[in-house]
């Protein structure tokens, strides 16, 4: 049985589901924001600031930040386990893959915290 510790959760199926659920949420947020910008040409600062200080939008944005972290972790993990393999890199593959995942994880966390700070500070 393949034992794997760097994937997001206990089982592959859970990751598979988490990626789909987060994808739907990310799609909803993207479409909402793009729609908002398209249908509000000549947006003023007051409207823009008002949008992001609205509680529902704050929750939606924070939820999206979490979904983005989950989605990107599962996605990058999938890519790294597909391509950074012993077949391609021999013995060094495992170390290379681990470093790749650490960098992705760090970037993910930094962006997440930054996002929360922005939304928090309004």
């Amino acid at each position: 049985m393949v034992t794997n510790v760097t994937n997001l959760s206990r089982s592959g199926l859970y990751d598979w589901m988490a990626q789909r659920v987060s994808a739907v949420l990310l799609a909803a947020y993207t479409l909402f924001l793009l729609g908002y910008l398209i249908f509000n040409p000549g947006l003023t600062y007051a409207e823009w600031q008002g949008l992001f200080s609205n509680n529902a939008m704050r929750i939606f944005s924070l939820l999206t930040l979490v979904a983005l972290s989950v989605h990107s972790w599962v996605g990058m993990w999938t890519i790294s386990t597909d391509y950074l393999t012993p077949m391609a890199f021999g013995k060094a593959a495992t170390v290379l893959r681990f470093l790749f995942q650490v960098v992705c994880g760090l970037a993910m966390f930094v962006l997440f915290v930054w996002g929360v700070q922005i939304l928090w500070g309004i």
């Binding site: 600062y45 823009w48 992001f52 922005i118 500070g121 309004i122």
Partner: peptide, 11 residues
């Protein structure tokens, strides 16, 4: 995002 939300000038 943070600049655009920070102030009128930032926007």
């Amino acid at each position: 995002l943070s600049t655009s939300l920070s102030s009128e000038a930032g926007f």
